[in-house]
């Protein structure tokens, strides 16, 4: 991927010299600069504790950077407040590593939450929930409390909630941590569908099986710094016809790669 192709597409995410420190003196991310294009699928890899989750938390405004600038869809997300921030968050779907499911609510209710806050019609919500559950083979869990599900099922419900509102940016933290091979394929299928419909997707993972054959860009983080950033060949996920990514972006640690 070249600088020319990078500039030809709008950047969904711009991170410039971003650092995150936790008290007393723990540096989780150090001098991260990366640009992710709109509609791109992007892998964030690294060992546990490398800083992947922190980076996702910064992107969805759960944490504030100690230094540097983060822009999502052209907006400095840490300066956006009130209804503007709410609107921005409706456009960002996040599947958290710890799922953040409401365990006393049913699967359907958990998935519906992200659509209810943007005042979607009840009929549309019902249809979308059923469709997502069918894609993840969880149709029979529609009315089950999420607290009664297995970890793998909970993980899939969390992912369904993240993509339910058709967001333009999807952040996924370890999407396959508790899944078998078949469920992993279903999850990736769902993500690729969202990607094909135009969403920018960032997947933080240390599961090599899901990015090994990928033609998308892969950024490795080590001790909070960018260790490497592959350029990707723009051909998309190997198993999916019509994957349309490959847009360029720059990235780097200190000096951009």
């Amino acid at each position: 991927m070249t600088e020319a192709t990078a500039s030809s597409r709008t950047a969904m995410i711009e991170m410039i010299k971003v650092t995150k420190r936790y008290p007393p003196n723990v540096t989780a991310l150090d001098d991260i600069s990366v640009s992710i294009a709109s509609g791109e699928m992007f892998f964030l890899i690294g060992r546990s504790g490398a800083g992947k989750t922190t980076l996702l938390k910064l992107l969805c405004n759960m944490e504030r950077p100690s230094n540097g600038l983060i822009e999502v869809a052209g907006m400095n997300i840490h300066q956006v407040t009130g209804n503007k921030l709410a609107k921005l968050r409706q456009k960002v779907g996040v599947a958290y590593q710890d799922f953040r499911l409401l365990t006393d609510r049913t699967v359907a209710e958990n998935i519906a939450i992200s659509m209810e806050v943007s005042y979607k019609q009840p009929q549309i919500i019902r249809n979308r929930v059923r469709s997502l559950l069918a894609q993840l083979q969880l149709e029979d869990k529609h009315d089950i409390l999420t607290g009664d599900l297995s970890r793998g099922e909970q993980q899939r419900v969390a992912l369904a909630r993240a993509v339910a509102n058709s967001p333009t940016l999807i952040l996924v933290d370890e999407p396959t941590g508790n899944l078998d091979a078949i469920s992993t394929a279903q999850v990736m299928e769902l993500l690729i569908r969202s990607h094909n419909s135009g969403a920018t997707i960032i997947i933080a993972t240390h599961d090599e099986s899901i990015y090994r054959h990928s033609t998308h860009r892969i950024m490795e983080i080590k001790n909070g710094r960018i260790a490497s950033l592959s350029s990707g060949d723009g051909q998309g996920w190997p198993n999916v016809v019509g994957a349309r990514d490959g847009a360029g972006a720059t990235g780097g640690s200190g000096d951009r790669i």
């Binding site: 709410a86 968050r89 409706q90 409401l102 939450i113 992200s114 806050v117």
Partner: peptide
């Protein structure tokens, strides 16, 4: 608290 935190994260407005 957990639910309110989640609502905030999925984009619920303050009024909601």
């Amino acid at each position: 608290q957990e639910e309110l935190e989640l609502l905030k994260l999925v984009g619920a407005t303050n009024n909601y």
